[in-house]
Amino acid sequence: MSDTVGCTIEKKLLPTLLLNESKHSRVFIPKQSDGVTEYAVFGKGDTPDLEAGQSRLSPKSFFFPQTETLYAFDYDTIEPSASEEAAEAPVVLFAVRPCDSASFELLDQVFGPENHGYHDPYYEKKRDNTIVVTLACNKPGSTCFCTSVGGDPAGTRGADVLAFDLEDRLYLEGLTTKGKEFLARNGEVLKEAAETDREVANTLASSARESMPAVEYDRATVKKNLDDQFDNPIWEKITNTCIGCGACTYLCPTCHCFDICDEERHYKGRRIRTWDSCQYAQFTKHASGHNPRPTKTERLRQRFMHKFSYTVESVDEVYCVGCGRCVRYCPVNLDIREVLREFSST
C-alpha cells in the first residue's frame, strides 16, 4: 500500500457515487442472482453486492469480449466496427477482485504494442477508457491461491483505485492518475480517512493473507522442471480425466487465445474474433491435416507450459493470477495447484 492516506465512503452513499459516475460512464457492479456473481450495469436503485465474492466469469471480457466485430464490410468498403466506436464511452468497473485486476496488466502485455510493436486498437481503446476500482478480499475463497503466484488479497496490480471493505464504510486509495481523478471528482461523498482506517485496512489484508494456503510454488523451480520434463509421462496421467472442454481457458482471466472468422450474407459481412482455446484439436491443426499438438496430452501440457514456462521466459511473468476458477469449475476436478506440486520437487 502507498503512503498516502486515502479516503472513506459510507456504504449507504455508494449508490450516490455510482449514480454520479453513471451520468458520464457505463458503471458495472457485482450482482448476485441464483448464487452466481456477475458484473452487471449499474442502474438507479442498484447497490453493489460487496459480499458476492469472485464473479463466475473473469472480467477480462470487458476488454476482450467473447465475440467482437473487428470490422464490417460490403463489396467496396471496410468500416470499423460499432464495438470499436462504443469503446469510446468510459467505463467504471467497480469492485473487481485483485486477482482479476492483476490479470489486466498481463493482458496489456499481450494486446499492447510492447508485444512486437503491434497495437490491438479494440482492446486498447476499451482499456484506456476504463477505471478499475479493485476491492481487496477480506475472505479469500477455498480455491484462491493468489499469494502462491505473486498476488495478494489486497494487491494493487492493475487497479486504479484500491478499496477495502471496513463493514460500514469503504476505505479507498487512488493509485493511478485515473484513479485519483475518480476520487477527486467524487469528493462530495468522500471523507478524508483517519490513520486508524488505514490500520484497519492493513489488519484485514494481513488476516486475509494469513488465511490463504502457504506459498508452495517456486517460479524458477517449476519452470525448470517443466522445461526439463517436457516428455515426462506424468502429463498423460494428468490428462487422463480431462475431457478437453476448454472451460478452464474460457474462465481464466489471463487466457487470451482467439479465432478470427468471417460472416457474410448478400455481399455484406463482418470479420469477427471469438475466444478460442488451446484445448481444442482444431486450434493448431494445419490445412494439411498435420497437427503439432495432436492429443489432449500435448494440449493440456501447452496450457501449463504457456503459463508457467513460456511467458516466464518471454516476458518474465507467470500467466496465472491464482483466482482458482479453473479449479472450482473444472468438470473433472483437474487442479492446477496439484499440477504445480507435481513439478515443484527439487
Partner: peptide
Amino acid sequence: LENRMKCGIGKCGRCNVGPKYVCV
C-alpha cells in the same frame, strides 16, 4: 516453419513453438 495462424501479430496464441511465436 509453418504453423496454423490467425492474427499473424503475436496475439491470438496458436502458432507458438515453446515460448516463440512463428508469426513474430
